[in-house]
Amino acid sequence: MRRLRTTPTAIRSTRSPTIWSGDPLLPARSAVRALAMVLCALACATAQAQDAADVEFDRPGIGFSPSVLAPARFAWEQGLPDASYDHSGGVRTTRYAAASLLRVGLGANLELQLGSDSRVWERTRSADAHEHVQGSGDSSVALKWLLPGSNDDMQWALLARQGVLTGASDIRAGRAQQDLGISVATGDLAVYVNATRDEDGTGWTASPSWTFLSTDTVAAYVEAALGTGAQRSHALGTGITWRVAPAMQLDLSVLRGFADAEDDWTGGFGVSFLLP
Rank of each mutant, 00 (worst) to 15 (best):
G115T: 08
D170S: 05
E223R: 08
L158Q: 12
G268N: 15
P66I: 06
A10L: 06
V164H: 11
G61E: 01
S150W: 07
S21L: 00
Y192F: 15
F258Y: 10
G187D: 13
T205I: 10
D51S: 08
G89Q: 05
T166P: 09
L180R: 07
Q162D: 08
R5D: 02
S116M: 11
G135C: 04
Q155F: 11
T186C: 10
S30H: 07
S272A: 12
V38W: 15
I19G: 14
E56M: 00
L110T: 11
G22P: 11
V55I: 05
G167E: 14
L110F: 12
T215S: 06
L252W: 14
R232T: 08
G257Y: 04
A10T: 09
T94I: 02
A225D: 12
A28N: 13
A127M: 02
T46L: 14
N194P: 10
L101G: 00
L80H: 13
H234Q: 14
A28T: 10
F258D: 08
S30C: 05
G149Y: 00
R5A: 01
D179E: 14
G268H: 13
S150C: 11
I11D: 04
R92I: 02
H87L: 06
S67T: 01
E199N: 03
V184K: 03
G115A: 07
V38G: 15
T124W: 04
Q155N: 15
R12H: 10
V68L: 03
A97F: 06
V222T: 13
R95P: 06
Y221S: 12
T196I: 09
A129F: 09
I182V: 15
A36Y: 13
A10E: 13
S233E: 14
A206T: 15
T215D: 01
V38L: 15
A129V: 06
S30P: 04
S65V: 00
A220E: 00
G105I: 05
D128W: 09
L39I: 13
R12S: 14
T241Q: 08
W204L: 11
V193Y: 11
G203Q: 09
W210P: 11
L102E: 00
F57C: 00
G181R: 04
R2Y: 15
S207W: 09
G149E: 00
C44R: 07
V104H: 03
A83K: 11
V133H: 08
L101Q: 01
H130D: 03
V193F: 07
A219I: 00
N151C: 12
A99N: 14
R232L: 03
T7A: 10
D152Q: 14
R95F: 06
D23I: 13
Y96A: 12
G229T: 02
A72M: 01
L250S: 01
A41M: 05
V193S: 14
T6V: 10
G187E: 09
R33Y: 12
I11T: 04
A247D: 03
S214A: 08
R15D: 10
D153P: 00
